[in-house]
Design a protein around this nucleic acid. Structure first.
Lengths: 200, 200
DNA sequence: GACGCGACCAAGCGCGCGCTAGGTTGGCTT
DNA sequence: AAGCCAACCTAGCGCGCGCTTGGTCGCGTC
């Protein structure tokens, strides 16, 4: 009998360094962040990073792969509901929760998508983006067909505005501040569903 | 008598190179774009760029200064109206027009703001951003006071969602496609003002 | 007490970066 | 014909980048 269960699946130190790198990538951008900065922040020398990672590129690869696996799974789970309004609410909440819980990954995704998508190894980014769009648009279109959503705007365009508004909120949202993610989600949903014009 | 009027205020060649650089900055990012790439695209050698510009940094400085001067002036002009709904419509249209007419500048502003704002020479970015926010928020708050806008969401938060949705559309909007900027503005305004939920 | 190994250090290689200094060219002016 | 100057070239400097190679250290296992 070996005591395998005690051994972490992946090195804890590796995860720690990945989180540090993610923070720097999110703050300053992937290209602008140097391996020496990452190493400094982790308290080691730059060469020692390569004990944990193949390359700087593989750090951002790891980060985004983990994040996208998680959030796409959440979207899938949430989208199985019947009521389009309820599903849309849940999708939006999930999105803002991700902004709160995975700040760095969301910021990197937002800022570096166009850069990274050029390289074959990051094809999984496009796959995740496309599946996400499919899930959201399907709900919007179902709601339009059943009459709970207005049908005079394109579902894809509505999706884009929603996605962008949620993702970009990572630039001004601060987790320690006034509003919790689900409150912001509700603010956003209120204006999205009912509009800001007074009907009275 | 000299024939000064014929001489361009700034070199036409300089403007041409600036537009080329802007396109590359927008596509690949400022840090990732090299002076050699800019020079190649302009059909000259990298050293020759420095006949026209002090530095790579001064290119992006020039680009953003020109853009922000223009758009802030437009916002100011448009905000002088009385009717909050009308002013908001005009602001949103102006925003989408800028996305259409100044693609590169908007993209650079969106992508590099956080990076550039760190350096003193780019303090004018913050000034422009703050004045813009003041103009938009003032209109929203005026509309809330007079009762044409709902008052149960924060004006600043509404502003941020609007600003981001407009700016980020530069990532998917293509000028040659189906929709003109004012059509997209109207789509966006329809969902923003009235919401996407059917009242029936 | 020898061994294995995960974590890190020491030293530095080669490349591409932004930028520079001085020279050349050709059209325009006088 | 001479001079000027914007535009561009030639050649390359120094720096910081991502990454590599071989070695050190200390903890846990048998």
């Amino acid at each position: 009998m070996s005591s395998e269960a005690v051994v972490p699946v992946v090195s804890a130190r590796r995860e720690e360094i990945l989180a540090i790198a993610a923070g720097l990538f999110a703050e300053q951008g992937f290209a602008t962040t140097t391996v020496r900065e990452i190493a400094d922040a982790a308290g080691i020398l730059s060469g020692s990073l390569y004990h944990h990672f193949d390359s700087k590129e593989s750090m951002v690869d790891d980060l985004l792969r983990g994040f996208l696996d998680d959030i796409v799974a959440r979207y899938r789970a949430v989208a199985s509901g019947d009521d389009p309004v309820g599903v849309l609410r849940a999708l939006v909440r999930t999105g803002f929760e991700a902004v709160d819980a995975h700040r760095s990954a969301v910021a990197v995704m937002l800022n570096e998508y166009n850069l990274l998508i050029q390289y074959p190894r990051f094809a999984f980014l496009r796959n995740a983006a496309e599946e996400t769009e499919r899930i959201w648009v399907e709900v919007l279109e179902r709601g339009m067909e059943t009459g709970v959503f207005r049908a005079d705007v394109e579902a894809r365009m509505v999706y884009r505005f929603m996605r962008d508004a949620i993702w970009v909120s990572v630039r001004w949202y601060r987790p320690d501040r006034r509003y919790r993610p689900d409150e912001i989600a509700d603010f956003y949903l209120a204006t999205l569903l009912e509009g800001i014009a007074q009907s009275s």
